[in-house]
Write a protein that binds this DNA or RNA. Sequence first.
RNA 1: GGUGGCGUGUCCGAGUGGCCUAAGGAGCACGCCUCGAAAGCGUGUGAGGGUUUACGCCCUCCGCGGGUUCAAAUCCCGCCGCCACCGCCA
Length: 424
Amino acid sequence: MELIRKDREAVATALAKRLDPAEVAGALDEIQQLDQQRRSLISEIDGERQRRKAESRAYAEAKRAGREPEPVAPDAGRRQLPELEAALDEVQGRLRNRMAELPNLPADDVVSGGKEANRVVKTFGEPPAIEKVRDHVELSRMLGLVDHERGVKLGGSGFWMYTGMGARLEWALLNYLIERNVEAGYEFLLPPHLLLDTAGFAAGQFPKFYDDVYHLDRQSAPRGQFLLPTSETAILGAYQDEILETAKLPLKAFAYTPCYRREAAGSHSDERGTVRGHQFNKVEIFQFTLPEQADAALEEMVTHAESLVEGLGLHYQRSLLAAGDSSAAMRKTLDIEVWMPSTGKYKEVSSVSWGGDYQARRAAIRYREPGGKQTRFVHTLNGSALATSRLFPAILEQFQQPDGSVVVPEVLRDRLGTDLLSPR
RNA sequence: GGUGGCGUGUCCGAGUGGCCUAAGGAGCACGCCUCGAAAGCGUGUGAGGGUUUACGCCCUCCGCGGGUUCAAAUCCCGCCGCCACCGCCA
């Protein structure tokens, strides 16, 4: 808000990377007008309250002195107070809603435009040479790793069940990721999977993505709870309304949870198998930092996430997302995309973002200015490290052999007890 | 889920309608004292918001939300949380 008051131009320009300029101007006008109203109402209310307190005190003193106090007559100003307060509530509510609808400001080096404007900024490894490419769905079937039929039988379309060595591969991947994140200095959290709506709002996922997550009905959850779409929501929500100790920043945490999403069930050829579903496993890293630490933290997180992919020996690329293709809550997003031989495309296994103070404002997560007593909002950064439902098919496809067997990445061999998955 | 007790500042803890503009203590910070430290003494010590060039002034917050009253930490109602016991349960 202060930013809009002080430098409306900059806000408008940055937002125009995401929204239509006319729309931005309209929204900002309305916000500034509401802000004006809010402040004048507050002044009025404060003045009235002050008067009222003085009257009460005079009454008390008179009584103490033994005099019969003059009754305080309800006058016009006094009667107005409840009305003013109601008006203020109304204005503040509207202001909050308008503000909540604004997306975050894209960073300076983020360009406008959609997916087509994304830029590949780094590549690791080479696409493996494979003579006759089998896709991961076929490989999974041959190796008995994923049972889609029974998954659907259990959960409906959009669900699968890992079986046998597939379950062990998935679990081995998760353990590999967990260990590496711990080594990188992140604290391991296992949060609830069911969160209150307030947590969804703080993360900036509500109100916009309200319909993309699973909500419990009011009968069983009167307070409003939903299944988390990513553990980012939980990590952020965990620190809601807190003032973090400045000395402990950057605060690094990670969590493993399944992610539950009501994705439009696309049966595109490049989203088959475990690539897109209503439930998938993801390990999420998160940092709360001082504003000046955020740049370095973003780079550290991307590099760390990449090292996880490299550790598995997978070929990938890093992309800087354009404003239109990145989440509205984020200022800058870098994707790590892994090579899928069957489609000849790269598929996101990690999305690392800098949120600025957008989420921290909503969640009221602050730190104390060193030396000063002023509190300021922290910056938040989050990133997948990593999504196993995407790694899994990439491993199968990139490491497949002519006979349909799959070479197990070295770091997983001990965990799986084998260096080769063979057709049964 | 049931019954009972409890929820006050960074922490402990007093406060049952009006000098509560929240006692007292601990912790922390700064200062004095000291060769240095401890002890002692003094001062300060939360959040959000409004207003102001600034010093400052003002408003709100005693788990949360309503109500009663000229006046609420204090009385009433609802909710949430914690503790204990009971029930149920991996």
